[in-house]
């Protein structure tokens, strides 16, 4: 176990390093930030001064090594736009995105898992068919449209919930969180629902498919032949086998929720990382883009590792010690 964790850490280090190269080169080719940053009226001397100030006069490889040196010290460089450390800028926005993602995933699990279980156990019931049809809608309706509709219905027509922003926040663990205030929660509800819709459908369909795969297995029949109550057969024998694919997807989807909640954050003007990264790309704010992408890489590496550990807990046939 310990050796495999150490091996994993090294693998992660290489992934991160490889990503720095790709990200750095990729960001360099999408455009020259100087054109946006500098007042078009500025003269040549002024231009040269600003370019030198951001270190953009060096060749790319040298810029890369300067960046690596900074990275080793935990410094992603200062944002061109805000003039503050890029990392701090992102971490400031992290709680907003994090609470949105967790709320959305929570809704998706709480709704998707039981409904999927029901639809899998009683596939021929009309209610199950309704659930499955609904999940197709959840899959195929575009997020931005659903977001707009939610705002239309619940904010504009009914006036129940606010249209945008985070509402009042409270300090907790060094970040600002909306879910700690009741008004903040009201602000959180619509974007979380919007983001959860697709994930709910996904978990629902995955759960149903899992149930239908596990139910005909001999070990379920044998569990019944032992005289176990139906509740135990479902809650222990079916559910534990079912959790293996579900945990994988939930883990990966959590990563993608954090990384790609851009659309929802834009529609609800939710000041999270997604909005920051879109603004930064528009302004070619290189250090912020690079820092953001690095954090996402790290997030996925960590998530994958956590999923693997969950696997060994759920499925005894998987052992980390065996050759990966």
């Amino acid at each position: 176990m310990v050796t495999s964790i150490i091996r994993r850490l090294f693998q992660a280090l290489f992934v991160v390093l490889a990503m720095t190269v790709i990200v750095f080169i990729g960001v360099s080719v999408i455009g020259n930030p100087v054109d946006i940053l500098i007042n078009p009226d500025a003269n040549q001397v002024e231009r040269a001064r600003v370019i030198a100030h951001y270190g953009l006069d060096e060749p790319l490889w040298k810029q890369y090594f300067i960046f690596l040196r900074g990275l080793a010290q935990g410094d992603f460089g200062d944002s061109f736009v805000y003039g503050r450390p890029a990392l701090g800028l992102i971490l400031e926005r992290l709680p907003a995105t994090l609470e949105l993602a967790i709320a959305a995933l929570g809704i998706a699990i709480v709704v998707g898992l039981p409904l999927g279980l029901y639809a899998g156990l009683y596939p021929s019931r009309i209610s199950s068919r309704t659930i499955m049809t609904g999940s197709i809608l959840g899959f195929s309706l575009p997020t931005f449209w659903v977001g707009l509709m939610l705002i239309m219905i619940f904010s504009v027509e009914l006036g129940w919930l606010p249209t945008n922003g985070r509402g009042p926040t409270l300090e907790f663990l060094g970040g600002q969180w909306s879910f700690l205030t009741s008004d903040g929660l009201r602000h959180l509800l619509l974007p979380a629902l919007n983001l959860a819709l697709f994930k709910t459908s996904l978990i629902l369909r995955l759960t149903r498919a899992g149930v239908q795969e596990v139910l005909p297995q001999d070990y379920i029949k044998f569990a019944r032949a032992k005289g176990l109550r139906e509740r135990r057969v479902i809650a222990v024998h079916v559910l534990k086998n079912l959790m293996i694919p579900v945990v994988t997807i939930v883990g990966l989807e959590f990563g993608s929720l954090i990384a790609f909640s851009v659309v929802t954050e834009s529609i609800f003007a939710w000041p999270g990382m997604g909005k920051l990264i879109i603004d930064s790309i528009n302004l070619l704010d290189r250090p912020v883009i690079v820092a953001y992408l690095m954090i996402m890489v790290l997030l996925f590496v960590v998530l994958n590792f956590v999923i693997d550990i969950c696997y060994t807990i759920l499925d005894p046939r998987v052992r980390l010690d065996s050759k990966a």
Binding site: Y219, D315, P316
Partner: peptide, 16 residues
Amino acid sequence: AMVFQDPMMTLNPVLT
């Protein structure tokens, strides 16, 4: 009680 054909399939693989 019942005993099934394939002992590989009769016991739940994820439970002790």
